[in-house]
């Protein structure tokens, strides 16, 4: 029931997204005006697809990271993975600018994987009785890497590039400039195959070993999936914080942690919330735009507060 409502909302948002923008476009024009179709094909369509993929994949990545770290207050974009991806792509731009794009992506992903692994090692040394230390350490850790990226970029006169990677928004998405995101979509969808495994490592190392799971292997697969999705997002549309934090928390509060059942819901909710934010961002100062991250921060916080204070249905 909830699922159906979510999917329906997402479809409605997608249709709305196609007809919101600076250039006037009415649904009737599609049938008669070839320029309208062209606008949808080259700009509005790709933008909508990019938002949906980004929102869904980031929400799924957030869930996986929260399971790995066993803490509900972390997400890849603020805990070093996103900054690692930016660092990777910066290094590639500086030292090997002639590499084919897929190789560049592979290198950025590798750096993101390395910074996330270091984060995991740091987290494992924190006292388990202090869960709030984990997000704080994550913020500081991500902040340090981000500052490093900024410094190197400043020295190399690459600040404008950095701005694109660090501040996510979708106004630059056109046909031919977002297709890498399909890989992120594929990786996020593939990680659904390991939904049970991620749910089990979320119960802890002991429970995993007891159930015959190769704990380390699942953690590595999870980190790899997070890193690929994050790196591709950072390069294509830039960092979008909070999606991976807010959406998994909303879903697990409503529907629990049985990922086999809830991951699709997480993906659809993430896509819908980010798309709604993007549409609002396009309208609020029309014809100018507000970056999706800012709108999402407000929208996501509002939804989350409502959830916290709304009476629980089945307590």
């Amino acid at each position: 029931m909830i699922c159906l409502a979510l999917v329906l909302t997402l479809v409605l948002l997608c249709i709305t997204s196609l007809f919101v923008g600076v250039a006037d476009l009415s649904p009737a024009a599609i049938l008669s005006d070839p320029a309208a179709l062209d606008l949808i094909w080259t700009s509005r369509g790709p933008r909508t697809v990019a938002v949906v993929i980004t929102g869904g994949a980031l929400a799924v990545s957030g869930t996986i990271m929260q399971m790995i770290v066993r803490n509900r207050f972390v997400e890849p974009m603020t805990a070093g993975t996103g900054q690692g991806a930016a660092l990777g792509i910066l290094l590639v731009t500086l030292f090997t600018p002639s590499l084919p794009i897929l190789m560049k992506m592979a290198l950025a992903t590798t750096v993101a994987l390395a910074t996330s692994t270091v984060f995991l090692f740091i987290v494992n040394r924190l006292p388990p009785t202090q869960p709030m230390l984990v997000p704080l350490v994550g913020l500081i850790y991500g902040g340090i890497i981000g500052a490093g990226v900024l410094f190197v970029a400043y020295q190399a006169d690459l600040l404008q590039y950095i701005d694109i990677w660090m501040n996510g928004e979708f106004s630059g998405v056109l046909q031919g400039r977002y297709e890498l995101l399909w890989i992120a979509a594929g990786v996020a969808a593939l990680s659904y195959l390991a939904a049970d495994q991620f749910a089990i490592i979320g119960m802890g190392r002991t429970a995993s070993v007891n159930l015959g799971l190769n704990y380390t292997q699942v953690v590595v697969v999870g980190l790899l999936s997070i890193s690929v999705v994050t790196a591709l997002t950072v390069v294509t549309v830039g960092m979008i914080p909070f999606v991976g934090l807010v959406v998994p928390n909303i879903v697990s509060r409503l529907s629990g942690d049985n990922l086999r059942a809830t991951l699709p819901m997480t993906a659809v909710s993430g896509a819908a919330l980010v798309l709604a934010s993007d549409i609002v961002g396009r309208l609020i100062r029309y014809p100018f735009e507000i970056a999706v991250g800012s709108v999402f921060g407000v929208l996501g916080a509002a939804v989350f507060l409502w959830l916290l204070y709304a009476p629980r249905r089945h307590a």
Partner: peptide, 26 residues
């Protein structure tokens, strides 16, 4: 193991279902 205070957000049936994981692998 000894009881920990953090209960996973699962229904009773889902939790018991994870006991079958070694056989069905998902």
């Amino acid at each position: 193991p000894q009881a920990s205070d953090a209960a996973p957000l699962l229904s009773v049936r889902e939790l018991v279902g994870f006991g079958r994981y070694p056989y069905h692998k998902g």
